[in-house]
Simulated assay, not measured.
Amino acid sequence: MTKIRVIVGDETLSATLDDTAVARDFASLLPLELTLSDYHATEKVADLPRPLDISGAPASYTPRAGDITHFAPWGNLAIFHKPFQSARGLVRLGAFDGSIEALMQDGAFPVRIELAGQGAR
């Protein structure tokens, strides 16, 4: 399992990626500077620089609050702050280790996602 940090303004959130091929592919993109925006008052989404390889991943996933996922049909990152129904093409990457309160902002906002061992801010 790979530890990552999601930096939102002055807040640093800890998360753990699953030990899966798709999560390792996501980790290979880090560090990333993304702009998160709200989607259906349920998740924060951002475009990734490229689609992730979902070979061998389950066909669908039922997300919970705090899950970090990839929605393969759109090629985006989706961070859920509320649970949602099972969605075909949704693949879990990992989950936050604690509070995600810093992500509960209105509108679009920048975040940095990096491996926990990568450079300090």
Rank of each mutant, 00 (worst) to 15 (best):
V8D: 04
Q118V: 02
S60N: 12
G94A: 00
A95V: 03
I113P: 04
A116W: 05
E11K: 14
V45M: 04
I79H: 03
V45S: 03
D53M: 00
P83F: 10
I113Y: 09
Q85W: 06
A46D: 00
P51D: 04
I4H: 03
V22D: 05
P63I: 07
E101W: 00
L103R: 14
A65H: 01
L115W: 08
G56F: 00
G107F: 06
A65C: 01
M1E: 06
A108H: 00
I79Y: 03
P58T: 04
V111I: 15
I68E: 01
D38F: 02
L52M: 08
G107I: 04
F71Q: 05
R112E: 14
H40T: 12
Q118A: 15
Q105R: 15
R5Q: 13
L34H: 07
R121Q: 13
D97E: 14
R5S: 05
A87F: 13
A27F: 11
A116K: 12
D19I: 02
L17Y: 07
H81L: 00
T2A: 09
A78I: 04
A72G: 09
A27V: 10
L13H: 06
T20V: 04
L17T: 08
K44A: 09
P73N: 06
T62H: 08
D25R: 01
L30Q: 11
I113M: 12
G107A: 01
A46G: 00
F109E: 06
L93N: 10
I7C: 06
Y61M: 06
L17W: 08
V45T: 15
I54A: 14
D10L: 03
P73I: 11
Y39T: 04
G9N: 07
V6I: 14
L32N: 06
G66N: 09
H70N: 14
A102S: 15
A23E: 08
L93I: 09
R50F: 06
L93A: 10
A102K: 11
K44T: 09
T16G: 03
A46R: 01
A23T: 05
E43D: 10
P49Q: 05
K3R: 15
A21W: 00
E33Y: 04
G119H: 09
T62P: 05
F26E: 08
I100A: 01
I100T: 15
N76R: 02
A72T: 12
F80G: 02
A120E: 12
T62A: 15
P51N: 04
F84H: 14
A95L: 05
T69S: 12
A72P: 03
I7A: 05
E11M: 02
D19N: 15
F96C: 07
I4E: 04
G117A: 13
Q118R: 11
T2D: 05
G75K: 01
A72N: 11
W74R: 13
A65L: 02
Q105M: 11
I100H: 11
G66Y: 10
L29T: 11
G75A: 00
L29D: 07
V111Y: 03
Y39K: 07
R88G: 10
V6M: 14
L29Q: 08
A41V: 05
V22Y: 06
G66W: 07
G56M: 00
D38I: 01
G9P: 09
R50Y: 02
T69L: 03
F71R: 08
T12M: 08
D38H: 03
V111R: 07
S86T: 14
A116F: 12
S60V: 02
A15S: 07
